[in-house]
Design a protein around this nucleic acid. Structure first.
Lengths: 227, 227
DNA sequence: CATAAAAGTACACTACGTGCAAATTTGCAC
DNA sequence: GTGCAAATTTGCACGTAGTGTACTTTTATG
């Protein structure tokens, strides 16, 4: 699909973009809960009704940021070689999240919604949606191996755990570095993602105490797949 | 706290119970989205305004079922011995969920809300809330070991993964057994919970194909803790 | 240019959630 | 049981959310 860029598609994409931009601007300017759908519509130059043609709620409009963010990782996961250990694929996909351009909007959104129950609810939904898609992707991958039936429990446990680890890494990163997008901060995020998947790969058998000044071994000894 | 049972407390608890019961009855009778807060209030014998004194929304009233369900497991987790391998504690806590009395309301709720986006959103929130509480509980446990600093990433990854595995087991169970609460069905759930935590404990290293007719080894070889 | 389809808009309507003040119930002392 | 203070319920009003519907504008196509 190189050129589905008809005028209509472009307009819709532009409108959609205008809405999320307006919503983010209002969130930054007035704080969560202090603006209405009508405010967003006015700022985006559309009618209130049209807003609802694009998003079912204010939170949905803001959650589109997270969706885009996670879709990015999912896309990475899908194009990993099928014979690669699945945790390695997950690690590679999550690593994509540490890209400045990618995390920037999410980091901003995260700092603005911290501590707001209503908004973080939509965030949860986005992560869950991503989990479902990973389950689908992983199922398709394993289905490629003929003669063996796919273990639904394995799939769902694995996908859920991977997402949980990614989320944990993001959470710890935000707490530790705030919205800092400097190379050093992103390196921290990358390491956190590696370590969380590492913990997962080692069955959480390592001690629960921080390696502190010795980040090396935690990442080097973990991803020893059994296949 | 053996007797905080003043008249006021009892009345409030009764009202709260009446609300959730009315909400569940309406959910069963009319289906999700086909009844209003006013309907619930009428059925519970209170005013619409009073409903909102107890719950912030219809979904919140229904999610209280899930909260009670998960609080049960959390309570189990808290009273496990502190020197026990943490995954074993998690397994024991999750095992509590396979009790007929405990799962019954959740199973009913689950079948009624299957495929309803609005309602499952509140369910997600409940699971996430439980995750946060497990993180707190686990942090307190590890903090008991002096001289060692607690690794936030380990904590959050672990708690998130455990919850994800519990959720995965429940999902698979519902798909496989529906709302069946027979001893056999509960045995299946118990085994699913054991297996999911087993996968987690072994770092998801076992092949992704179902053991099929050989359920034994999957559970016996997994929980080999490294401590 | 004609015309059909797609997208945006105006309007009306139900329901949600909350602040507020009046009314009712409960706990407690006398 | 009477009086009184605190807790709880209730009715009312208000702004906002979300949706159905019919109407207008924009875009694609011949």
């Amino acid at each position: 699909m190189p050129e589905p860029a008809s005028r209509r598609e472009l307009n819709k994409a532009a409108t959609r973009q205008a809405i999320t931009a307006a919503a983010l601007a209002l969130l930054k300017g007035k704080g969560p809960g202090n603006f209405t759908v009508e405010d967003i519509a006015d700022a985006a130059g559309i009618s209130r009704r049209t807003f609802f043609n694009y998003f079912s709620s204010t939170e949905a409009a803001l959650a589109s940021v997270t969706h885009g963010f996670l879709d990015n990782a999912l896309q990475q996961f899908r194009q990993r070689p099928a014979d690669e250990p699945i945790l390695e694929s997950a690690r590679a996909a999550l690593m994509q999240l540490a890209d400045p351009m990618t995390v920037a909007p999410l980091a901003e959104l995260f700092t603005l919604t911290q501590g707001n129950a209503v908004l973080s609810r939509s965030e949860l939904e986005a992560w869950d949606h991503c989990t479902e898609q990973i389950i689908t992707a992983a199922r398709e991958r394993f289905a490629g191996t003929p003669g063996t039936e796919v273990d639904e429990l394995y799939l769902r446990s694995l996908a859920g755990s991977v997402i949980a680890c990614g989320k944990a890494a993001m959470d710890v990163w935000f707490v530790r570095c705030g919205a800092d997008l400097s190379p050093g901060s992103l390196a921290v995020l990358r390491q956190l993602l590696i370590d969380s998947i590492g913990h997962l790969g080692s069955g959480f058998g390592s001690p629960a105490t921080a390696p502190a000044l010795n980040p090396g071994p935690a990442t080097s000894t973990l991803l020893k797949e059994r296949l």
